[in-house]
């Protein structure tokens, strides 16, 4: 298929940036979206032009690196997938596709479609962990009884890959779904109880310090999340924060 691409090009963090039109031809419907960008970049290199910079790593929906805003939606029009799992069969011959970086003041553009998502790392470092005794006296995790329901919910929360689609899609650029997933995965397990109070207070403080917006419960993040992280996690974080603050 032949496509027109409108892609955000920005030379660096201080460049103003703009949308630039490109034509790509002979795109197979079996290609992934990132492979289509690879084809475009090959064409650009052959013409001695600057290829489009974009984030990618595992290309199988695990790492959370790919971060494109395609036709007005994070990771494109399909549900429950990352950009690398989006295939060209989701588009038609002759389509015009807009491709932009994930937008948020806390996700500054580094170049073209590459954004700095270190804010997520700093939030994680503020409390998204449990302090484990590694002296050899660590209790066997299997010896701690955990209900199947709690284990399943914790696992569901832990599937968050920190891609930032929640922030990108939120009209307020709120990071609540990401932070809530990280708080929840520990709040649901006995191992997470010891540091529960500090964790939620510190992570929310870091989230606010990073300049993310306030959640207004539009639920767009839940819809666009490639891992289907539920809004229940935000409600749980709201409870945890209230409990920790009082």
């Amino acid at each position: 298929m032949n496509l027109t691409l409108k892609i955000w090009r920005q030379k660096g963090p201080n460049d103003k940036g703009q949308m630039v039109d490109y034509k790509v031809t002979d795109i197979s419907e079996h290609m992934s979206f990132l492979e289509m960008i690879d084809v475009l970049n090959e064409q650009l290199v052959e013409k001695d032009k600057e290829p489009v910079a974009f984030d990618h790593d595992c290309r199988e929906g695990i790492c959370g690196m790919c971060s494109m805003y395609i036709n007005g939606e994070a990771h494109g029009p399909d549900r429950g997938i990352t950009t690398c799992q989006l295939h060209m069969r989701s588009f038609k011959n002759g389509d015009t596709i807009t491709i932009e970086p994930f937008r948020a003041a806390s996700f500054p553009v580094i170049k073209d479609l590459v954004v700095d998502r270190m804010a997520f790392e700093r939030i994680q470092q503020a409390g998204g962990f449990i302090s484990v005794n590694t002296s050899g006296n660590t209790q066997d995790a299997n010896a701690i009884p955990i209900s199947k329901h709690a284990a399943d919910q914790a696992m569901d929360a832990a599937t968050c890959i920190g891609c930032g689609a929640c922030v990108a899609t939120c009209k307020n650029s709120s990071a609540m779904l990401f932070v809530a997933a990280k708080v929840s995965q520990y709040a649901l397990l006995p191992q997470g109880q010891v540091e529960a109070t500090d964790r939620v207070l510190n992570m929310v403080k870091q989230m606010d310090d990073e300049g993310f917006g306030n959640c207004t419960n539009t639920a767009a993040c839940e819809v666009e999340c490639p891992k289907g992280i539920s809004l229940e996690n935000i409600a749980r974080m709201n409870r945890e924060f209230l409990k920790a603050s009082l």
């Binding site: 948020a104 553009v109 709120s174 207004t216 639920a219 767009a220």
Partner: peptide
């Protein structure tokens, strides 16, 4: 505060695909 957090606006944003008009 939310406007400040948004940064640069999207060229194309399909809000209707994932949230209600009211919200």
């Amino acid at each position: 505060k939310n406007k400040k957090a948004q940064g640069v606006k999207y060229f194309k944003d399909n809000g209707a695909a994932n949230s209600t008009w009211m919200s």
